[in-house]
Design a protein around this nucleic acid. Sequence first.
DNA 1: ACTATTTAGTCAAGCTGCTTGACTAAATTT
DNA 2: AAATTTAGTCAAGCAGCTTGACTAAATAGT
Lengths: 138, 138
Amino acid sequence: MLLLGAASTLVDGIHEGVRARGFTDLRPAHGFAFVRLAPDGATVAELADHLGVTKQAASQTADELVRKGYVERRPHPTDARARLLVLTARGWACTRAADESAEEVLRAWADALGPDQLAGVRAALSRLAVPGRIRPTW
Amino acid sequence: MLLLGAASTLVDGIHEGVRARGFTDLRPAHGFAFVRLAPDGATVAELADHLGVTKQAASQTADELVRKGYVERRPHPTDARARLLVLTARGWACTRAADESAEEVLRAWADALGPDQLAGVRAALSRLAVPGRIRPTW
DNA sequence: ACTATTTAGTCAAGCTGCTTGACTAAATTT
DNA sequence: AAATTTAGTCAAGCAGCTTGACTAAATAGT
């Protein structure tokens, strides 16, 4: 319960910070998509794999992000079937907002725990096997 | 991401252990209901509050658990409007299975981390403010 | 005391995010 | 050059949740 509560607090805290920075039309689930798209973009299939959903569902999520101006569909450089989903300027701005928000939450935790204990938690969790996919829906 | 991954691993691990013990008709969300019902039962409204959903949704969950034989609806001892949801023998058996399964996961983590480091994580998380409600759906 | 309001629970309808199934076009394998 | 696989979309359906409306019991107001 402690672990689940902490995870909830983290997700909700980041979400709240992102909202406070003006991105009010996104839900936490979109953040997980941004994580995959941020570095160099990704295809719908890659996004689906990352989110642990079908490619149809991932395509719908992508549609929504395109419609709201966070993502752009570009032709794929090497595969004419595929399309590369990449962040727009707005998408990058939102990503930065999420990073700042996450830092705020972690700073609060560092204040409560001390930096050493927080680093200890991080080190411990990193030693546990963690699934590549994030499936937040139970 | 480490925290979310660990939470996912924990939930999925417990769920898998419960399934392996023969309770194949439940999802992790039901486990959160059991947590609230286990000690002395609860009303639909209390369950709704615990799960962070409307009482209509909690009532549907209760219906399902009744239909599957895990929960019983009894008249409330002091309030004729309310009905007390209590676990059946099968419900208690499932609760025990979940406890065993959780112990297994934690034992695996203790093997990976050492008992001291695991206890440290537990102590650190307990110092962070944790919401009473578990909202697993992002 | 008796009226007014709140509270516990259910019924009904609707929405959202996901699923399965079917399909086209491009890439890859044989 | 044909057969198969892969990327993506369209369409329909489902599960779990929501809002809204209602009944009956408890509680509050005067």
